[in-house]
Design a protein around this nucleic acid. Sequence first.
DNA 1: CTAGCTGCTGCGTTTTTCGCAACAGTTAGG
DNA 2: CCTAACTGTTGCGAAAAACGCAGCAGCTAG
Lengths: 300, 300
Amino acid sequence: MKYLKTFELIEAVVRAGSIRKAAEDSNLTASALNRRIQNFEQEFGWPIFERLPRGMRLNPAGELLMQHIGLQRTDLARVQSQVADLSGERRGHVSIACSQALLPYFMPEQIAIYRAAHPGVTFTVNVRDRAQAERDLASYSSDLALVFEPVHLVDFEVLYALPQAVHAVFKHDSPLADKPVLRLRECLNHKLVLPSAIYGVRNLLELAASRSGRTLSPAVETESFDLIRHYVTQEDAVGFQIPIGLNVSEQDTIGHRPISEKDVPFGRLLLGQMKGRALPVASAKFSQQLLTALSNLSTV
Amino acid sequence: MKYLKTFELIEAVVRAGSIRKAAEDSNLTASALNRRIQNFEQEFGWPIFERLPRGMRLNPAGELLMQHIGLQRTDLARVQSQVADLSGERRGHVSIACSQALLPYFMPEQIAIYRAAHPGVTFTVNVRDRAQAERDLASYSSDLALVFEPVHLVDFEVLYALPQAVHAVFKHDSPLADKPVLRLRECLNHKLVLPSAIYGVRNLLELAASRSGRTLSPAVETESFDLIRHYVTQEDAVGFQIPIGLNVSEQDTIGHRPISEKDVPFGRLLLGQMKGRALPVASAKFSQQLLTALSNLSTV
DNA sequence: CTAGCTGCTGCGTTTTTCGCAACAGTTAGG
DNA sequence: CCTAACTGTTGCGAAAAACGCAGCAGCTAG
C-alpha cells in the first residue's frame, strides 16, 4: 500500500528516535524523509514531533495520530481479509495475546485444529501478562486476548469467561495426591514455588492467604510456569497453576489437585477483544472456535 | 490530505457512475483517473469496480472498501478535532440526524447555546426518520442521532432515553383543553390529522387503536408535523405530536394535552451514536450538553 | 574546544503522475 | 444497418513531485 508509506515512515522515525537513523532503516536519505514529515505536518495542520537536540519524539498530537494509524492499518487488514473471504479463499492472520498457562497444551492444539481446516491462515502468539494483554488490544497489536484474571477491563470486550480453580501442583507420589480436593493450609505446610506478583494465580493466593492471616513465603519465585511445573519434580515442593495449563500426559511425573473454593476463589480465564472493534475474518472465526472449545471445557 | 486523494477519487467515481464524469468533477482527465484506480486495485489485490458498458459500479469488495474509507475519514477528523482541542482551540463540526419534532424549538436552542460558548464549531442538522437516522450513523454521515422510537437499534448506542407521552394538539379554544389528561377515545371522535406511517407517533397510535378495536381514519395525513400543528388552527381537528416539539409560545393559537398512558404507551426519544465509535471532541461535548438538557426535561 | 550527533535546505537528477490523442467496445435511435 | 454517443483503456511526451547529494547551523558529550 503505497499511500500508507508516509505512515510507515513516521512509525520508523518513532522507533528509531531520529530522522537519520530511520532514513537508514527505510533505505532513504535523511533529506527525503525530513521533507515527507514536514509536508505531512503541514497538511495535518500541527507538528507531530518535538525536535530535540538528540532527535525526534512524538508530541501529544503525534500520540493521537499514532492511534489513528494503528486503527487505519488494522481496519484495512480487516477489509482485505473480508474480501479474500468473499472470493472464496480463507486466508489471513490471527494475532493473539495470551497467558503462559495456554502455551503448553491449549493454544498449540487449537491453532493446529484451525490450520488443519484453513492452511492459509498464519498466527502470531504473544505471551503477555494480564496488564500487557489489554494494552496490546488497545494498540491493535493483537486481535484477541486470552488471559487469566485481567486487571483494567476498560477497552476489553469479554467474549467468554471460563471459571478456573487454582490447582496445586506436586510430584506424582506426593501424599497430597490422596485427596480429590485440597485445602490451602495443607499446601502451605510444604515448600512453595510461586509465580511472581504480576500473575493472577499469585494474586488469588495472596488474597486467600491474608484472609486466613498467613503470609506466603516462597522457596522459589519465578515468572515461568514451566519452571514451576518442572521444579516440583526435583524437590518435594508445591506449585500452583490453573488446570488449562496442566495435562494428563505428565501424569506419571507430576500430579495436581484443585484447591477448595472455600479457600481460594475461582479465577476467570477471559477471552476478549478490543471493545467495539470489527475483527478480520480469520480472527473472528478463530475466536468462535476458542469460544466453543472453552465452553466444552466448562461442561467437562 | 493528499494521501487521501485516491479515496476521494474513488468516491467521485462511485457518485458519478463513470470515470469520465468523475474526472470532470475532479478536474482531471479520464486517463489519469483511470490509471489511479487501476493502480489502486493492483495494490489492493482485487478489483473494486465492475466494468459495465455504461460505466463503473462497485463490486462487493468495493462496498467493503467504501466502509473502510468512511471509517478512515471520520477517525482522522476525530484525531484532528482532539488535536485542535488540546492546543486550546475548540473548533470542529457536529453533524446530527434528528426527528422533525426537534427542529422547531429544541435543536435551535441547544445549538445556539453551544455556539455561544464555542463560536468555532459548525453544525449540520439533517432531518431523518427513525430508520434513516440509524443508517446515517452507520455510514458515518452523522455523528449523533436524536430520534423518536427508532426501529433497528443494532448499530445504535443509546446515550440517553427520554420518555415522551404522545400529546393531542388542537385549537386553543377546543373543549379538549378542559382536562389535564385526555383519553384516546375522546380524541378519536374528532377529525384526525395524522403523521404518515414511518413516524413513531403514528406507530404508537396505530398500536393503541387496534388494541381497543378501532382503526384510525385520518382526514389529513402528512409527513410534516409543521403542517399538523398549523392545520388544527384552521379546522376543528386533532393532531398528535410529542411535547418536545410543542411550545408555550403558540399558547394562544393551539393547545395540547397528553394522552393517558393507559391508552397510548410512552414513546422514547433516544440520543445515540454509532456503536463503539469514538466521537470528535465537538460532537462528544455537544452530546453531553444534549444529555443534560434532556435529563432536565425529564425531571420537569 | 572538538568531534559527533541532530534537523534542515538549495539544487540537480530521477521517478511518478498527468494530459492529449487515439483505439476498441457497447448501446440507443433513426 | 448504420451512425452518433457513450464507455474504459493505452502509448507517449510534458509537467510535477519525490529523491539524493552536499553543505549549513545548532546542540552536547567528552
